[in-house]
């Protein structure tokens, strides 16, 4: 049985050992989520870039102090493909961010020595169709990937309606394979793949996700609300379906109260990826 000391390596027996250059478990990732074009999608776009970068640095330090055993790798988590309420020219209900926007945020990460996550909300498009457009960024050592099943619409349902999207292990495995290929071809350190989850149905067949040592998979608990509800969601939708590492999302606006690093670190297993929206 696993003990709290194993928490960082939680949970899966037989998961690949980290390769040299892997971010986790040596470092915990602390990410700011959002998009500079919107003040409503998360802290990344909510305040001016200088204050945001300073706030991320301060927040990362809080985490480093709360768990002195572990370094903290700050990250900018950009929604690079944004689900839309309108079909758009391709009728895919998603908007791809321009190169200049992605480069702007990449520049911040590059300058600081931090990570950049590119998040895909597919809308009516697919993971398979969107990844190729991000490859030119993913070949950089600091750029990683995230998938948002909530906005991966199935059966032609439109995002932003009562219908919740979902993703299957097949799509996650496709992303893992693409990332592994990029790591191999460009001799890069392992990539991190974050998959958001806050219900049972939004990620199907999680037990069939096939781990690869070149890709570290995080299932990120991204439910909001009171700490008790978040803990329950973590237990039922993340811990119940172990994949590799776990993540925990914190909402400045919708969490009441906002949990402190110390409080989050009381959950088992300890999340290795922390995101602030």
């Amino acid at each position: 049985p696993l003990t709290p000391a194993d928490s960082a390596r939680w949970p899966v027996p037989g998961a690949p050992e980290p390769l040299p250059g892997a971010v986790m478990p040596e470092s915990r990732i602390v990410a700011f989520y959002g998009n500079p074009l919107s003040k409503r999608m998360g802290i990344l776009g909510q305040i001016d870039p200088d204050s945001m970068l300073k706030k991320l640095e301060d927040t990362a330090m809080e985490w480093a102090k709360a768990d002195p055993e572990r370094k903290v790798m700050p990250a900018l988590h950009l929604i690079a493909v944004v689900a839309q309420g309108y079909p758009g020219p391709a009728k895919k209900y998603r908007l791809r961010m321009t190169d200049s926007l992605i480069e702007r945020v990449a520049g911040w990460a590059e300058e600081k020595g931090w990570l950049l996550f590119l998040d895909i909300q597919p809308g009516l498009s697919t993971v398979e169709e969107e990844i190729p457009h991000l490859v030119k960024y993913l070949t950089r050592p600091y750029v990683h990937l995230a998938l948002d099943p909530e906005f991966a619409m199935k059966d032609g349902k439109k995002p932003g309606t009562d219908w919740m999207g979902r993703m299957d292990a097949v799509e996650v495995n496709h992303a893992i394979n693409q990332l592994a290929k990029i790591v191999e071809e460009h001799q890069l350190p392992p990539k991190v793949l974050v998959v958001h989850r806050f219900t049972r149905n939004m990620l199907t067949n999680a037990s069939q996700i096939r781990l690869d040592p070149r890709v570290q998979v995080v299932i990120d608990m991204d439910g909001y609300g009171a700490p008790s509800g978040k803990k329950a969601a973590y237990k039922w939708f993340v811990v119940q379906y172990p994949v590799q590492y776990t993540g925990w999302k914190l909402f400045y606006k919708n969490d009441k109260p906002l949990m402190t690093p110390r409080q989050v670190l009381e959950v088992y297993p300890k999340p290795m990826y922390i995101q602030y929206q």
Binding site: E57, A60, A64, K71, V72, M73, P74, G113, W114
Partner: peptide
Amino acid sequence: WRPRPIQAPLP
């Protein structure tokens, strides 16, 4: 690019 993680100061 070089990674620059943040570390807690020594006590």
